[in-house]
């Protein structure tokens, strides 16, 4: 267990927690912005207009097939030159995660909306509900049940992907860990092992509860 004392040094753990807060903040902001955009994208995907269909298809397929790190590079290095846009690393991360999250969420929304049988719309019409009532009282409650478990899983994926922010130079939990390791290189040569183990567990503690919630929701609503 040599070197583990590094974790008890004043300032080490609080700094790691501050780094974790940056990670959670980036993920949280991305999720909050991706939610409305994803709903819009999902609705656009159900439209029959051929131009809209082609655009959405290209958008979804491109985002899906490119590694997130490649998307981050394109946003961070490419956009600066293309639009003379001095986007900082955090901004580039949020931008990419929002566009990526919205594409994935949009596809989930599309799937959920298309899985509602036609009879539901027709029955609602027969019962005299107008289209707003049909959407809010009949379609939405059913779609949400199909949507929520996968969306919670998407949130954990976004949290995990924020780890890539460190490669663009954002000072989040991994970067803070590296700073601590470098600063203590001579007093605590074995700090590397412990700091990375703690960061590993920190990510786990953030993502695991979300996974459990997703699984519970899935089980509870599986047979509706």
């Amino acid at each position: 267990m040599r070197g583990a004392e590094i974790l008890l040094q004043p300032g080490v753990f609080p700094r790691l927690l501050q780094g974790l807060w940056v990670t959670v903040w980036i993920a949280g902001a991305s999720v909050l912005l991706a939610l409305p955009l994803g709903l819009l994208v999902g609705w656009l995907m159900t439209l029959k207009n051929p131009a809209v269909r082609v655009i959405m298809r290209v958008y979804l397929d491109f985002i899906r097939i490119m590694p997130q790190l490649a998307l981050l590079f394109i946003a961070f290095y490419g956009f600066a030159q293309a639009f003379d846009w001095n986007l900082d690393a955090t901004g580039a991360c949020v931008l990419v995660f929002v566009l990526w999250g919205a594409a994935e969420l949009g596809d989930l929304v599309r799937g959920a909306l298309e899985s509602i049988p036609r009879t539901q719309y027709e029955s609602a019409k027969v019962l005299g509900l107008n289209s707003w009532q049909t959407f809010t009282r009949v379609i939405l409650p059913q779609a949400l049940r199909r949507l929520l478990p996968a969306s919670v899983n998407l949130v954990t994926r976004i949290v995990k992907t924020t780890s890539l922010a460190t490669l663009l130079g954002v000072v989040e939990v991994i970067k803070v860990g590296q700073q601590i390791i470098d600063a203590n290189r001579f007093q605590y040569p074995d700090a590397t092992l412990w700091i990375y183990a703690v960061i590993f567990l920190m990510y786990f503690i953030v993502c695991w509860p979300l996974s459990i919630v997703a699984r519970r929701l899935e089980k509870r609503w599986a047979h509706d």
Partner: peptide
């Protein structure tokens, strides 16, 4: 399965590449 699914690959790699040599 829980550990592997709920942590990012980058942290797993850093642990393997920089952390394990200390062991």
């Amino acid at each position: 399965v829980e550990l592997s699914r709920n942590t990012p690959l980058l942290v797993q790699l850093y642990f393997l590449y920089f952390g394990l040599p200390k062991l």
